[in-house]
Every structure is written in structure tokens, then in C-alpha cells.
Computed example of a mutant assay.
Amino acid sequence: MIKFEVDENALKMIELKLDGMSAKAPDVLKKAINDTAKKLKSDLKIEVKKNYTAKVGGINKAISIKKATNKQIVAVVTATGRPIPLVQFKNVADDSVRAKAIKKNKLKPLTLAGADHNGKDLKSFVAKMSNGHVGIFQRTPGKSMKGNGSRTLKNGKKTKGKDAIKQFYGNSIVKMVGNEHLVYPTVERKANEYLKESLKKHIAKVLEGN
């Protein structure tokens, strides 16, 4: 979340620049803040696409703006959304299934050495479910799917059916936007610059009679 507001000193400065039209200062400030919030939202989308390998659908809806008003001169840019299936990020469906979420990182194998109930490598795989969903999955020894018959593991324990599977997920848009090393600081640095530009534009419009 990016909360963007301006203190009373800024409002007084705008009133002075408006030269006799101080009553219009709150409206000028509101418009400038909302313009800034809109630009920050656009920058967030650009930075997410620049730094992450996923084809992020619905990012425009995931980032919302609560606009400033004349009574409450505060704008809030907020991101929402659930973790994105890892299959939507860059991946290679080899024996181990390798994947990466951040563009500057290397592909990492998702296989766990010697982790299955027979002491073999626990490999990940890409699969299409009965509902048509495609994802990257891994079996979970010791946990079973329901209704598939029991079987005995190497350690003597019995399961109630086939090994359950878990799906791998990458970051949500919320985490991408809030990344303190990639996205957030790059966008935050531009906020004051955008606000100054917008204030000049809207003050000039009032002085010109628009």
C-alpha cells in the first residue's frame, strides 16, 4: 500500500501561489494527488512486468486507487490478490521441473533429494488436472488422497491411498508490488517529482481561468 498525503504547509504554499484564489487550493491539491496516484499505479504495473517472469493477468484490477477528496486530501494505492501458480512464471518441465520468479535469478530445480518414502528424489512435475487447470505439483509422502485404496510404506506405516500432491505457487501481486528491493522503492522515489509536476499544471490552469 502506498499512502500519499500532503501537510498543511504545502496547502499554504499553494494558496500563496494562487494569489487571491486560495479557496481553490484544496481542489488543486486533490487533483494533483490523484494524478500522482494514477502515475504511481502505472509505474507499479511496469516495474512488476520488468522484474518478474510471470505473465501477470488482471494486474490492472489488482491495483486500486482510493482517490483524494476536497475533505480528505489523501490518496491510497493498494494491491490485492492471491499467490499466483508457479506454472505461470518461467519454468522448464525437465525431470526436476526448474522454475524462477524473478528475472535476474537463475532457474532453480524443485526436486528434493532423497525426500520420498523410498529414499528417492522427490521430483516435481507439470500436470493438467481434470478441471483443466495446469500447474507444477509435487507428491507429499505420508499424506494421502482420499478414496484410492491403502498401501504400506517402507517404514511400515499404511496410507489410505495415493500420495497427496501439493501445488507450487509464486508471489502474489501484493508481494511483487511491496518488494523492498525491486518494485516499491523505484516507484516511491518518483512520487514527489510527480506531485510537483501536477501541482504546477493545476495551479497554472486556475491562474489561466480554466
Rank of each mutant, 00 (worst) to 15 (best):
A23K: 13
Y52D: 07
M129F: 10
K162E: 15
K38G: 12
I102F: 02
S130T: 10
A101W: 00
V206L: 07
H181D: 15
N51L: 02
L86S: 00
G20C: 05
N118M: 12
D121F: 06
G170P: 12
V6H: 05
N179W: 08
L195G: 09
N91R: 03
Q138H: 09
M21D: 09
T53F: 02
K201R: 12
K50C: 02
A164Q: 11
I63F: 04
I173P: 03
Y52C: 11
A115I: 09
L199N: 05
A54I: 04
S198I: 04
L107P: 03
P26Y: 08
K123T: 07
T152M: 14
L107G: 06
V6F: 00
K90V: 05
S42Q: 00
K196V: 13
N131V: 08
K128M: 10
I46K: 11
K162N: 13
L11R: 12
I73K: 13
K120V: 09
G132K: 09
K190W: 02
K146R: 12
L199S: 01
L199T: 01
G161Y: 12
K24M: 12
K49N: 11
N179E: 07
T53G: 07
T186W: 06
E8W: 14
A113H: 11
F89V: 00
K49P: 01
D163W: 10
K190L: 12
K12Y: 05
A164V: 05
T78W: 01
V28T: 09
F137Q: 01
N171P: 15
E8M: 11
I165F: 13
K200I: 04
L40E: 07
K108N: 10
K196W: 05
D43T: 06
A101D: 06
K49V: 00
K158R: 13
S198L: 03
T69F: 00
A68C: 10
A101R: 10
E5G: 04
S172N: 08
P85N: 01
N105S: 15
G132C: 14
Q88L: 03
N70T: 06
V77H: 08
N155D: 15
N155E: 13
G58N: 03
P185Q: 12
G209K: 01
N148F: 05
D19G: 03
P185M: 13
K38M: 13
L86D: 00
V183E: 09
P109C: 07
K12N: 14
V56L: 01
S130C: 01
K146I: 04
K41L: 08
V76N: 03
E208K: 15
K103T: 05
K71Q: 02
N131F: 03
N60S: 14
K90R: 09
A75N: 01
M1K: 09
S150N: 06
A204R: 14
L16N: 15
E188F: 12
M129N: 13
I73G: 00
T78L: 01
I59S: 03
K108R: 06
M1D: 10
K45I: 07
P141I: 07
I173L: 06
A23M: 08
G209A: 09
I136D: 03
N179I: 02
D43N: 10
P85D: 07
A127R: 13
K66H: 02
K160M: 05
K61T: 08
V206Q: 11
E193F: 08
S124D: 02
K3R: 06
Q167F: 06
I203V: 14
K100Y: 11
E208S: 15
R98N: 14
